[in-house]
């Protein structure tokens, strides 16, 4: 089935775009914005709002109908199935399948100073009513905090005999997070550790597809909680155990 964005009629293609142009607001600037919208594939774009936002900057909000469509039947992604298991059930799974505590080591790595993401997954209190991994029986969780460089992260992972590594990247500038995530995989490989751990990335700009592409076992973007991460890791560990 081919689809387009939906406004109020099926396949009307209704799309909103906003951006800034580095020129002063003028009739010419508005026309420039409109032509850019056309180049994006918007039919009949209409600049519904334009505003001077600086000496040499103007801001535009544009609506138009998107010409392009996608055939959803041809799209292939591996979707991580949303957790149907509760903390209790996950704890039970660990108890049944493992005779020891599972070690999770997590950090916000590289230059990233934000711990919001890793805290939401690991800290006792968790996030939005979902308790973090520290509270799980059968899991020993080490949250290393922020700005942990990849070398230190690997060293600690080795010392703690980690089963699962969680890497968080919250704020990014000029895609520095990608470079950092790739570097970690390379370092793990060079230390012969990559296959010995479940490697999971998380963060505002991370999704499963991207993480797989970068060499991770999974990626979790916004809207995921500790149980989603825990379930994936534990199912994967069971799979590997059973080989």
């Amino acid at each position: 089935m081919k689809i387009r964005p939906y406004g109020d009629t099926l396949n009307d293609g209704a799309t909103q775009v906003s951006f800034t142009l580095p020129i002063e607001l003028s009739a010419k600037a508005i026309q420039a914005a409109k032509e850019l919208a056309k180049k994006m594939g918007l039919i009949n774009p209409s600049v519904v709002h334009s505003e001077k936002i600086g000496k040499n900057f103007s801001f535009f909000i544009i609506y138009g109908a998107l010409n392009a469509n996608v055939d959803i039947d041809k799209i292939k992604v591996t979707e991580i199935k949303k957790t149907s298991k509760s903390q209790k059930e996950i704890e039970e799974m660990i108890k049944t399948n493992f005779e020891r505590e599972l070690i999770f080591v997590g950090a916000s790595t590289g230059t990233d100073a934000h711990t919001v993401g890793i805290d939401a997954i690991m800290n006792m209190k968790g996030f939005d009513g979902h308790y973090g991994l520290e509270r799980y029986q059968g899991i020993k969780a080490y949250n290393l905090g922020s700005q942990v460089n990849n070398e230190d992260f690997i060293k600690i992972a080795r010392d703690k005999k980690a089963d699962v590594l969680l890497v968080s990247q919250t704020v990014t500038q000029k895609d520095v997070h990608l470079k950092n995530l790739v570097e970690l995989v390379e370092l793990l490989e060079s230390e012969n550790l990559r296959d010995k751990v479940i490697l999971i990335a998380g963060g505002a700009r991370i999704n499963h597809e991207l993480a797989k592409e970068l060499g991770y076992d999974a990626g979790f973007g916004p809207g995921n909680y500790a149980e989603d991460v825990a379930l994936f890791a534990i199912e994967e560990l069971i799979k590997r155990k059973e080989g």
Binding site: S18, T20, I53, T170, V171, Q173, R205
Partner: peptide
Amino acid sequence: EAIHTPFISDRY
């Protein structure tokens, strides 16, 4: 917030 460091329009 939590997406990128502010664009000029975000700030405005």
